[in-house]
Design a protein around this nucleic acid. Structure first.
Length: 714
DNA sequence: GCTCCTTGGGTTTTT
DNA sequence: CCCAAGGAGC
């Protein structure tokens, strides 16, 4: 029954026995504090848990679920717990298994909004005009579709930002504004979702594209990420019987990270909530950092209005950080000018070290400081894995990376470009999609001439014209190309070869066994391996083929794990589109490099929060009046970003700010972040290293030795 | 149909 | 300054 079976296998391989997991909690053994107990003990009706950073919210959720099952006798399959990422959902599975045992944990519905949506739409497929099978478009696909439409319909010029157009449409969709209403909205200041954004040329373009976009999805039998939430919500709203049946299914809903939900997600929760209103939401408005992509902090601020009679519990005891770190965090967030649920984190861990405020000359010196400190920390017995370097933009990470490498300090980049986003993996996946989803024109066009087989733009145009003229799907024209005189012989041969390869693969995949093998054969047959390894050549070509092999490996793993259900290529593709099977985490001992956004939910003994300067944090895009759409609320989101970063630290926190940085090739002076104002009075201490100078011979020797040791170790 | 070069842009990102 | 994406040229 559980949506995410992923955690099963991992747990079997011996992850967390319950005792170990309990021993790990720092909240004074297994006892819950008073507020936590209230949240766990709450019976029927809506519950809002305002969980400050490090206040043990996951414990509350898991203990609450366990209590519902064990004391109230709620059946596990009638509990739906929604997280934001697959990783969080899997982690929840582990924790639940530790609490109530694997058999019971596996019966729970633990999922993300989006994987719930897929499950829902698969089940309700009959009532959808798109028929039984649908392809899921990720954001890249959506952008690709918008790009095609802009080109095909001749809208705008090429300076147009396609991403901006797609994001307007996405914001509309999430507010249930359909293409017709988007037109009706014209001039309405409420237009694209983000409150007081000024309607501009992009609204006009997006409005024009929107109907084509929706038609395109329908023709391709595709749902984009927004649809995965919006469509279930809409179906539940419009069909009483479907609604009643799903409401009966779930006695209790629990939603984590509620401050990150958007309008459509709230609506889905409302539609799923039964008459008892057994909805428990957990979150922290002070950690709301995804407003820019449509998250509405109002969902948590006004939860009591959405669900009358809500019981509110505040978790303010922090079990993570030492007092000075919390004092700084409280001070930073108290400066917020936005409406919030007032909260103050209380320290339960000892007093500890003052937060270190580090002025440096420039980002290079910043990187050097970080690397040198980490080396000293290692000497003092800290493990690299206990240390993180956090920053506003990925660009900043580059410099740190270089410096750590020079010092032989092992690191891992958190987030960053995922393996499934790599071009070669997307190409390979497009082949699989073309096999399964004959209507997925986007994927078909992607592979039509990859690897190069003599099919150029002209040929594609001809086929497209033919499809339009005859009113047939684009895919069907492949079979007709042979008879078309205006298509060059080479292109005809190429298309025939592609068609046969896809057809042969389709037969093998339909059998439902040996999926991975069939995929590998397909990739080899159409020449992906040859293209990467030979044509493109070099070590990078081999590595890219390895990435493709990773996809094959993921398919193989899926095939083996999902023995209960019948494995299907379609299900696999839906999973990878939703980043289900992310890269196996290298749990080796490494320093974490991460953006502030990606760091939410993580914690470390030592945190370096670099680039605390105006223009970076807050980012200039949110403060520069010249930049369209910069609203005052965006600056407050930057403040919360800093707050999130600060509260990642358990024992030691460095806040670094450079005096100058280079911007567009120019060296520009910068000032410390406004958010640091008022932190000087005893909360923090100034910290500089005295070796902030050319390296000494001994240090060079040290670095060389560290590097050598690493090279030998790998 | 493919390759090199110019041009423009440079925040965060999971699903 | 550095990178990615589209256009002109081969």
């Amino acid at each position: 029954m559980a949506l995410e079976r992923g955690h099963r296998g991992e747990r079997r391989s011996g992850a967390h026995p319950g005792a170990a997991s309990r021993a790990r909690t720092r909240s004074g053994g297994v006892r819950l504090n008073a507020a936590q107990r209230v949240a766990v003990a709450h019976g029927q009706g809506p519950l809002l848990v305002l969980a400050g950073a490090g206040s043990g919210k996951t414990r509350v959720i898991t203990h609450r679920i366990a209590r519902l099952i064990e004391q109230d006798g709620v059946r596990p399959e009638s509990i739906l717990a929604v997280s934001f990422t697959n990783k969080a959902a899997a982690e929840m599975g582990h924790r639940m298994a530790a609490l109530v045992g694997a058999e019971i944990a596996d019966r729970l519905w633990l999922s993300t909004f989006h994987s719930f949506g897929v499950r829902f739409l698969n089940e309700e497929a009959k009532s959808l005009r798109r028929g039984g099978r649908f392809v899921v478009f990720d954001q890249g696909d959506s952008i690709g579709l918008v790009r095609d439409i802009l080109r095909r319909e001749g809208i705008g010029d090429r300076s147009l930002d396609v991403v901006a157009v797609q994001s307007r449409i996405s914001l509309w969709k999430n507010r249930f504004v359909d293409p017709a209403s988007a037109h009706a909205d014209e001039g309405d200041s409420e237009s694209p979702g983000q409150g007081d954004a000024i309607p501009d040329e992009y609204d006009a373009v997006a409005r024009e594209v929107y109907p084509f976009y929706e038609a395109g999805l329908a023709a391709m039998r595709a749902f984009d990420f927004d649809d995965l939430v919006v469509q279930p919500a809409r179906i539940l709203r419009e069909r009483k019987r479907v609604r009643e049946s799903w409401r009966q299914r779930f006695r209790h809903l629990l939603i984590d990270e509620f401050q990150d939900t958007n309008h459509a997600q709230l609506e889905l929760v409302r539609m799923l909530a039964n008459d008892l209103g057994n909805v428990c939401v957990v979150g922290d408005d002070d950690q709301s950092i995804y407003g820019w992509r449509g998250a509405d902090v109002g969902n948590i601020l006004d939860f009591e209005r959405h669900f009358p009679g809500t019981k509110v519990v505040k978790l303010e005891d922090n079990y993570r950080s030492h007092a000075p770190i919390l004092a700084v965090a409280n001070r930073v967030i108290a400066g917020s000018r936005q409406r919030r649920h007032p909260k103050t984190l209380r320290a339960t861990r000892g007093p500890g070290e003052a937060v270190r405020l580090c002025p440096v000359e420039d980002p290079t010196a910043e990187a050097k400081l970080v690397a040198r400190e980490i080396r000293d920390l290692e000497k003092a017995g800290h493990k690299p894995a206990d240390v993180a370097v956090l920053y506003r933009s990925n660009l900043q990470g580059r410099l740190i990376e270089e410096e750590l490498r020079a010092h032989g300090i092992p690191y891992r980049l958190y987030g960053g470009t995922q393996i499934f986003d790599r071009k070669e993996v997307k190409d390979a996946a497009a082949y699989l999609r073309s096999v399964v989803y004959s209507h997925d024109e986007l994927s078909l066009r992607r592979i039509l001439n990859y690897p190069p087989r003599g099919v150029g733009d002209t040929t594609v145009d001809r086929l497209e014209q033919l499809a339009t003229a005859r009113g047939i799907p684009f895919a069907r024209t492949l079979a007709l190309a042979d008879g078309m005189a205006d298509i060059p012989a080479q292109a005809r041969r190429g298309l025939a070869a592609l068609r046969q390869a896809l057809e042969a693969a389709r037969k093998r995949f339909r059998a439902g066994t040996g999926l991975a093998l069939a995929a590998r054969d397909l990739f080899t047959q159409v020449g992906i391996e040859r293209d990467l390894v030979e044509t493109q050549g070099g070590p990078s070509g081999a590595r890219r083929w390895q990435n493709v092999c990773f996809l094959i490996g993921a398919l193989e793993r899926y095939e083996r794990s999902e023995v209960a259900d019948k494995p299907s290529l379609g299900a696999f593709l839906q999973r990878i589109t939703m980043r289900f099977d992310e890269e196996e985490e290298e749990s080796r001992n490494r320093v974490t490099l991460s953006t502030l956004h990606a760091a939410k939910g993580l914690e470390f003994d030592v945190v370096f929060l670099i680039g605390c300067v105006e223009g970076i944090l807050p980012h200039s895009r949110t403060t520069d009046p010249k930049v369209t759409e910069a609203a005052p609320t965006d600056v407050e989101e930057e403040r919360r970003l800093l707050y999130v970063g600060i509260t990642r630290a358990r024992e030691r926190l460095y806040l670094t700010h450079a005096r100058q940085r280079s911007f567009r090739g120019r060296t520009t002076p910068v000032t410390p972040s406004r958010f640091l104002d008022g932190l000087t009075d005893g909360l923090v201490e100034q910290y500089t290293r005295d070796d902030d100078a050319p390296m000494e011979t001994a240090e060079v020797a040290d670095m060389a030795a560290a590097l050598l040791a690493r090279l030998n170790g790998e």
